[in-house]
């Protein structure tokens, strides 16, 4: 939690989704590189993370309906929104349509909406209620501005993740950043070192954690 002077974010990412689908776990997996049991979020929580030459602001929000008064505040000028649902609960998937569509009207016009299924480690493929195809379809419907070629090249903004097993979490965030803050070839070369340093750090802190466990 370094808090130095002025902080100007280049991209604002918000995460939305029903109560207890694992929004905070997802964010903490990416930011702190570890998984731990989370107490339910109160209101909205603010995280700050550098990515390459850029600064990313992440708003983690509470899923409880009583905080809907805050949504206008954190959605405004959001460049990307993660719409999280629990892969094991079709109700939370339906909520993405019912609850959060209207909330997102306050976000940037070109806001990238990423549909993210959580808790894939608990998912039994044979009995799953929400198919990957449905998730993909919702993701494409929410992002009419994504052209076919881009989707073919980079994939649809749909991910099935596990914060517990660290599956697809980094990939999902990288997808967002690559799309919203594209690095030029020159920048990529210059900051590649930096970007991978962050990755290495995450790897190493995680490795350390594992050692302690075993």
């Amino acid at each position: 939690m370094s808090q130095t002077g002025k902080r100007k974010a280049d991209l604002k990412v918000i995460i939305l989704g029903d109560y207890a689908v694992g929004k905070t776990s997802l964010i903490c997996r990416y930011i702190d590189g570890k998984f731990q049991k989370q107490d339910s979020t109160v209101g909205a929580a603010f995280f700050f993370k550098p990515w390459g030459p850029y600064n990313i602001a992440v708003w983690d929000t509470a899923g409880d309906e009583r905080y809907s008064g805050l949504s206008h505040f954190y959605c405004r000028s959001a460049g990307a929104a993660i719409l999280a649902f629990d892969l094991n609960s079709p109700k939370t998937f339906e909520s993405l349509w019912a609850r959060f569509g209207s909330i997102l009207e306050a976000a940037n016009e070109d806001c990238l909406k990423v549909v993210v299924g959580t808790k894939s480690d608990e998912l039994d493929q044979s009995t799953r209620d929400v198919s990957a195809e449905e998730g993909r379809r919702l993701a494409l419907e929410l992002n009419p501005e994504l052209d076919q070629a881009y989707v073919e090249r980079c994939g649809a903004p749909y991910f099935e993740t596990s914060a517990l097993k660290n599956e697809n979490v980094t990939e999902m965030f990288e997808y967002i950043f690559q799309r919203c803050l594209p690095l030029s070839a020159e920048q990529q070369r210059r900051f590649k070192g930096k970007v991978s340093t962050i990755d290495l750090l995450e790897e190493s802190s995680e490795g350390g954690g594992r050692k302690k466990c075993c």
């Binding site: 905070t24 989370q38 107490d39 339910s40 979020t41 109160v42 209101g43 909205a44 929580a45 995280f47």
Partner: peptide
């Protein structure tokens, strides 16, 4: 709430 320990929070 433990959640305030993780990050700066903003709540009504």
């Amino acid at each position: 709430s433990e959640s305030f320990k993780a990050a700066e929070s903003w709540t009504p």
